Amino acid sequence: MRAAGAMSADAAATVLAPVLDDLRALCDFGPITGELAELPDVDLLVTGWGCPPITQDALARLPSLRAIVHTAGSVRGFVTDACWDRGIAVSSAASANALPVAEYTVAMILLTGKRVLERARSYRSVKQVDHYAIPPTVGNYGATIGILSASTIGRRVIELLRPYDFHVLMHDPFVTEVDGAESVGLTELFRRSDVVSVHTPLLPETRGLVSGELLGLLRDDAVLINTARGAVLDQDALVAEAGRIRAVLDVTDPEVLPADHPLWRSENVLITPHLAGSQGNEWGRLANHAVAEVRRWVNGEQFATPVPAGRRERIA
């Protein structure tokens, strides 16, 4: 079987390079390029960050292409309708990439529950603490956690929250039941939750979904966590609410926010540089996932993590 890589040079060097020998042991693999016009006709593409859209014109130069194995999460940016229409089998590492995002989310839920960052700043300043003066809103016992969207990541967060003394709510218009969570309406999720964690894909109908109206339903000192896409949140509305509620934003719109954006100056808002997803040694999980999927394809097996054509309109 002939295969090649389609991704940026950086993605090739950091994600794929460590497993090249494994791929070459499975198939006739190479080259790796970010320019589809430079690819030879192959049976399978291993794609990654920086892969350009695989359009009808690109497919005309790849008449043998029958499968795509993606080394990252979303395939929306490059798997076009032409790929689905040809019946090309697509696999994504979204499930592998979901774990570090879910881990980050759980960490932030626990840290914000104890108000760790704020109390650490105060401790550094005053060098003393009165534990009996801590308000009853601080702590993680019995807190209500709202998960917005039962996506791959949202479900993983719900799974990781099971050992804790939380009550977990979930809202998803397409899913009515997830083990470990109480399914509720959208407004109820925001009204009842101490923490709302956003895991909604960015679709036309979800742009600005987390509106000022919903933010206004959160109790004082509640927390909003967004690891999905920045545009799912009405950031102007958050600016207005940032003195009343807290927020952890791993994604913004745009990335990076302008230097003079007011969210940078809010002590109630923590902005991290889109680090929740796979980074550093976590790229190894993505690469090994891709190798396993290539092995299945070479052996005539179905992908373990296929992306069905019927989900094309709802994938992130």
Score class of each variant (00 low, 15 high):
240 A>R: 15
289 H>N: 12
260 D>N: 07
175 V>N: 04
138 V>H: 12
122 S>L: 13
192 R>V: 04
44 L>N: 10
314 R>D: 06
257 L>D: 11
156 R>P: 01
159 E>H: 15
173 P>G: 01
75 V>P: 08
145 I>V: 12
87 G>N: 07
188 E>R: 03
139 G>Q: 01
229 R>M: 02
176 T>Q: 10
42 V>R: 07
194 D>Y: 08
112 T>I: 02
161 L>G: 06
217 L>N: 05
210 V>Y: 00
159 E>N: 10
132 Y>K: 13
278 S>H: 08
40 P>T: 10
299 N>S: 13
184 V>S: 09
208 G>T: 03
153 I>M: 10
72 A>L: 14
41 D>P: 04
123 Y>L: 12
16 L>W: 05
186 L>Y: 11
188 E>Q: 14
172 D>N: 10
124 R>D: 15
270 L>A: 14
103 E>V: 10
149 S>Q: 11
225 I>F: 00
81 D>R: 12
302 Q>C: 01
222 A>V: 00
94 A>T: 08
80 T>Q: 10
129 V>Q: 13
22 D>N: 12
226 N>D: 09
256 V>T: 14
268 N>Q: 14
273 P>W: 03
111 L>V: 03
280 G>S: 15
271 I>H: 07
72 A>E: 12
276 A>W: 04
248 V>A: 06
225 I>D: 00
102 A>S: 14
69 V>W: 02
213 E>H: 05
87 G>L: 05
213 E>L: 03
248 V>R: 06
161 L>H: 02
286 L>V: 08
270 L>S: 03
12 A>I: 01
174 F>V: 04
240 A>C: 03
312 R>S: 00
107 A>W: 07
178 V>T: 15
109 I>E: 05
207 R>M: 06
143 A>Q: 14
191 R>F: 07
296 R>F: 06
127 K>E: 14
301 E>L: 12
182 E>W: 10
227 T>S: 13
173 P>L: 08
74 S>H: 11
105 T>K: 10
34 G>K: 09
120 A>L: 09
227 T>I: 06
71 T>H: 11
148 L>S: 08
236 D>M: 11
306 P>T: 00
237 A>Q: 01
139 G>C: 01
65 L>H: 02
214 L>S: 03
165 D>E: 08
306 P>L: 00
37 A>I: 12
156 R>I: 03
284 G>M: 13
120 A>G: 11
111 L>C: 14
304 A>F: 02
283 W>G: 12
112 T>A: 07
243 G>F: 07
30 G>C: 01
265 R>M: 10
243 G>S: 08
280 G>R: 11
206 T>S: 11
10 D>H: 15
29 F>G: 00
274 H>F: 09
88 I>C: 09
42 V>N: 08
33 T>S: 15
80 T>L: 06
18 P>C: 11
261 H>W: 07
184 V>M: 01
89 A>G: 05
232 V>T: 06
98 A>T: 02
158 I>N: 07
91 S>E: 11
180 G>R: 10
300 G>I: 11
163 P>L: 04
91 S>Y: 03
223 V>C: 04
254 P>F: 05
83 C>F: 11
142 G>W: 00
233 L>K: 01
182 E>G: 13
